[in-house]
Design a protein around this nucleic acid. Structure first.
Lengths: 104, 104
DNA sequence: CAAACAATATATATTTATATATATTGTTTT
DNA sequence: AAAACAATATATATAAATATATATTGTTTG
């Protein structure tokens, strides 16, 4: 006899972890920020210029990315530099680029 | 001179489309449903039994998946069968399985 | 040490998503 | 056509995310 309850619970656990991750990416501002950071480290003013995201939103959304450990920071003088800290982000950005940015 | 405005707008457009998609997947119930459907067509009572999702939630979340054109249905007598309609879903499920369900 | 600057934090209104209870529609069977 | 069943729809309370305005912290430079 096969107990499917465990399978469902395992599926639900994995689904929970995956959806936490997906929800963090599922915002245009945050996704754009991660796209920029996939090209390497950026300080906040770089990100502001490159994306046009207004400062308070930028700060709020960077805080979300930090809280979820998708990025880490380092201070250099006045500037704070951000970079991607979770390799899953890069894998997912690749996948999204294949699906939503054909040939570029 | 390089105009980065167009690039940013293009990036924002792509980010918008991608995040619409991600947000639809970013719910544990919907993700579980899509996982089940990735194994082939299912009717609603199958999905209810396999996932343990209560009926009204099931109906509500299946409606979201229909509205976003991620699934389509076909009626056979009393049963309504669901299947995945968007190949991007399968690509994303594969990716998520690699990232969140190592070796199984 | 005060001014200027880079960044973060807080506050609030609004929108959106979710959970959950209840009601309705449509199909088949007798 | 009425009963039984499969599924969908509605309603509402609650929670979460977002936009946006304003305030604060920390660092450097003159």
């Amino acid at each position: 006899m096969t107990n499917t309850t465990l399978d469902i619970e395992a599926l639900r656990d994995a689904a929970g972890a995956a959806t936490d991750f997906l929800r963090t990416l599922a915002n245009p501002d945050r996704l754009m920020l991660l796209c920029q950071l996939s090209g390497g480290e950026r300080c906040v003013s770089d990100l502001e210029n490159e994306t046009g995201i207004p400062q308070p939103t930028l700060s709020q959304q960077l805080a979300v990315l930090r809280r979820e450990d998708l990025v880490v920071t380092r201070r250099e003088g006045k500037q704070i530099y951000y970079r991607i800290a979770d390799p899953k982000v890069l894998a997912m950005l690749d996948q999204l680029q294949q699906l939503f940015c054909p040939e570029d």
